[in-house]
Write a protein that binds this DNA or RNA. Structure first.
Lengths: 352, 352
DNA sequence: CTGAAAGCGCTTACAG
DNA sequence: CTGAAAGCGCTTACAG
């Protein structure tokens, strides 16, 4: 009958923390041991606890509003009941769909928490360790750099998202960015472009290297000259991309550049914005393209030609892989490659 | 000298978890007790541990790569060293800046984790409890509903963001959305609009009620008729807003609506997209406005007139308030109201 | 079918 | 200045 609210002797030392309901309180109320409470709370009762007692304990749990304490549980079992998604830029609109997919896949048994890092940057060793010290049940890592992956070395259930070419044994779910990049290069060639610049993301990430390389290779096969690095790489930030492009434009113009391919839609929007300020007609004077197909791509001025990456499908596939891992099984398929698709809008057009 | 990697008797039962370095191992290596390791690891040594021992332990810590285990620490102290931000739609581009502000303010002592919920929806009681069971050191809650706040009742360090009019005693950092909404109404009146529709967010959230109410009140004072609910409220999603607007347009047109004010930029982008598909000239046939001033607002077609909400400042102020709370102090100021500003672009214009 | 007890890794009075 | 010990809340063999 330990009523936490009414205990007169409760030490009021810390702030006004909510009184934590413990298994011991539930046990007392139901007249059983904490071991039994644990069994019931975790649904491990089959053939181990009588139906009558299960009912009694369940009632006490719901009356008291008991929730298994994560710290205690983690300590005893080795890991908590939550999963952490690490991504370089979670606030990118792109992740909204990825996250929705993940949640749908992992279900209600695990909480999904996001680790936030700087703009398009990955956390330092130090931060990774702190994250691991939290004892997540599993980790989802989006668009990791090689270095990051190395630091992460062998840490329990792990699924990689959008991580082409990474070593290691973790299951991966990728976009077929190469096919998309090639298709994009083909489109620009068909539009008559002969000299283009590529604006890359500053993140040292495989997926961006793959986009850039595939674009370049196909473009050059088709007789397009690709000015690599003519625009310094930027974070995945509209403003940063706008600035970088504006600064580089005189040089690009002199070199005869008629199109800029960007590693992400967000950067492409920045280029569009800068182009407008510079008085450049798009696509007349300059064509612009991205990767992602964010919802905004349909309402930018002009609409953005971009390589669509199926974000929700990525999240869902990754969530499913992780769930398999968490259940202690090996995924049937260790590498999933999702098809991409070129979406043509007004930001590119036939050159006359 | 317990080297975790080399122990031959290590049970290989679970997956390939990284060997966890414990305080006991550090203590053994440094020839001290775990109590001393704890003191050193937490920087609580001043006047309690000799410089020589501090150095010895620190060296062992860095050699072993020891990180204080969050579960153990949480259990012992009552709370972990991380903070959770709960927001209805974290993948909104808006939060990128809020998060940056928060991180800058709380510094490296606390990890920032985001709780992800559905599109513009708040987590259920069940999820909140699971979150609290994780024992966060503090909570930041953005744009909460009344109901959510009630469920949260008295749970240690808590700061509310963009939560006008909420009861309770938690420190709050708000936008002065009323002033912005009034300014917006004034602008539409000056442009000659006489009948406007308001597209609200479906979230049952104070900040949205405040935006809507303030807009309506000022608009009506200025002789504008506001069609409330003529467009059903939507989630903060471009596509949902586009659909809702398109479906409602025949009715709006019949009622003489010449402008749509949206609760968020994202929804406004949806209306812009739908208007384009319907062949409506913006702002000629229809003016559109939002709230936020996302980076995209400058590159939509046409540029979006919107009430700028200083997102980074919000995050930073909230982070500072929380830090004060975490330090056990009471914030000097319990309600911070950040100024907003109307940004006029091409999506609104003088009516002829 | 049920409970007593050990142990997960840490922190914090308390002795010395 | 330093360490032995209790305790945070839970889970899991192990007895019964």
């Amino acid at each position: 009958m330990v009523s936490p609210q009414s205990g007169p002797g409760k030490a009021p030392t810390p702030p006004a923390r909510a009184p934590r309901v413990t298994a011991a309180e539930v046990a007392a109320k139901a007249g059983v041991s904490t071991a039994t409470v644990s069994l019931v709370a975790n649904g491990k009762t089959s053939g181990r606890v009588s139906a009558e007692i299960v009912a009694r304990v369940a009632e006490a749990i719901s009356e008291l509003g008991y929730v298994v304490d994560s710290a205690g549980s983690s300590l005893a079992t080795g890991a908590g009941n939550f999963v952490i998604l690490i991504a370089p830029d979670i606030s990118n609109a792109f992740y909204s769909q990825v996250i929705t997919g993940i949640r749908a896949a992992i279900g209600p048994d695990y909480q999904l928490l996001l680790s936030v890092t700087g703009n398009g940057r990955f956390p330092a060793v130090r931060d990774v360790r702190k994250l691991l010290a939290l004892r997540p049940a599993g980790l989802l890592v989006d668009a990791p750099s090689e270095q990051f992956l190395a630091e992460l070395a062998a840490t329990g259930p792990l699924v990689l998202l959008d991580a082409p070419g990474s070593g290691g044994t973790a299951p991966r779910v990728n976009f077929d960015v190469e096919a998309g990049a090639a298709e994009l290069a083909g489109h620009l060639a068909a539009c008559g472009h002969r000299t283009v610049a590529y604006l890359d993301s500053v993140t040292g990430t495989q997926t961006f290297q793959a986009r850039r390389r595939a674009f370049r290779v196909t473009a050059e096969q088709l007789g397009i000259r690709v000015l690599d690095g003519a625009i310094p790489s930027t974070t995945i930030d509209l403003g940063a991309a706008a600035e970088a492009f504006a600064a580089a434009w005189p040089q690009l113009a002199a070199a005869g550049v008629t199109a800029v391919a960007c590693a992400t839609d967000t950067q492409a929007f920045g280029v569009l914005q800068a182009a407008r300020k510079l008085g450049l007609a798009v696509p007349g004077a300059l064509a612009v393209t991205g990767f992602d197909d964010l919802a905004f791509a349909g309402s930018s001025d002009p609409g953005l030609t971009t390589v669509r990456l199926p974000a929700a499908a990525l999240g869902e596939a990754a969530g499913n892989q992780l769930k398999t891992l968490l259940a202690g099984r090996a995924p049937a398929c260790t590498l999933i490659n999702l098809a991409t698709e070129l979406v043509i809008r007004e930001s590119t057009g036939l050159r006359t």
